Amino acid sequence: MRILEGAGAWTPLAGAANDWAEQLRTPDLSVGTYCIPAGGLDDQSPHTEDEIYVVTTGRGRIVTPDGTADVGPGSVIFVPAGEEHRFEVTEDLALLVVFGPAYGSRAQG
């Protein structure tokens, strides 16, 4: 057992537009926190792993080719591997992110 201290908490790096911090990595999954300030640009690319986002603080919209949806604290979002997606942020957004398998483990390189 392991408690993931700080996972999902709003903790952006000073001067950074967005912040990604990984709190756990195993071969089968990884867990981290992604923070985007209000009005910030979410410039992520599609991932090679499935992912689940849990909004812990803040508000905005998730935009995918299939549509858009408003998100806020408690929202849980599944994004399959390879799907384009981005967040449009209206209030500082902190997301707990779970990747399966671990983030980047399927990346071609």
Rank of each mutant, 00 (worst) to 15 (best):
L95A: 05
A17S: 14
H47G: 04
A81Q: 12
E91K: 11
L24D: 02
N18A: 10
T68I: 10
T56Q: 09
R2L: 13
E51V: 01
G72W: 05
G104Y: 00
Y53L: 12
A17C: 07
A69K: 12
E84A: 08
G58H: 06
Y34C: 05
A14M: 03
D19Q: 09
T48K: 11
H47V: 09
G58C: 07
Q23K: 11
D70I: 12
P101G: 05
A9S: 14
A102I: 01
R59K: 09
I3D: 01
E88C: 06
I77H: 01
E5M: 04
R86Y: 10
H85C: 14
R25H: 04
V55M: 09
A17K: 10
L93W: 03
L24A: 12
Q108K: 13
P37D: 09
H47R: 09
R25S: 04
Q108R: 14
I52M: 12
P73C: 03
V54Q: 15
I3C: 03
D28K: 14
Y53P: 00
G39H: 04
G32S: 02
G72V: 02
S30D: 02
C35I: 06
D50E: 15
A17T: 13
T26E: 05
D70P: 04
A107G: 08
Q23C: 07
R59S: 11
S75M: 05
V98H: 03
E88H: 02
T56F: 04
T68Y: 03
H47L: 10
I36K: 08
P37W: 10
D92Q: 08
D70N: 09
V79P: 04
Q23N: 11
D66A: 13
G15R: 03
W10H: 02
D19S: 15
A69V: 08
E49V: 07
E84G: 06
V89K: 02
P73D: 01
G40T: 00
Q44E: 15
F78C: 07
A107Q: 11
Y103L: 15
R86M: 01
W20Y: 08
P65S: 05
G104W: 00
E83R: 13
P27K: 01
D43A: 15
I36C: 09
P37C: 09
V97E: 10
E88A: 03
P37L: 11
V63T: 03
V31R: 06
E88M: 05
L13K: 08
L24Y: 05
G8K: 04
F87V: 07
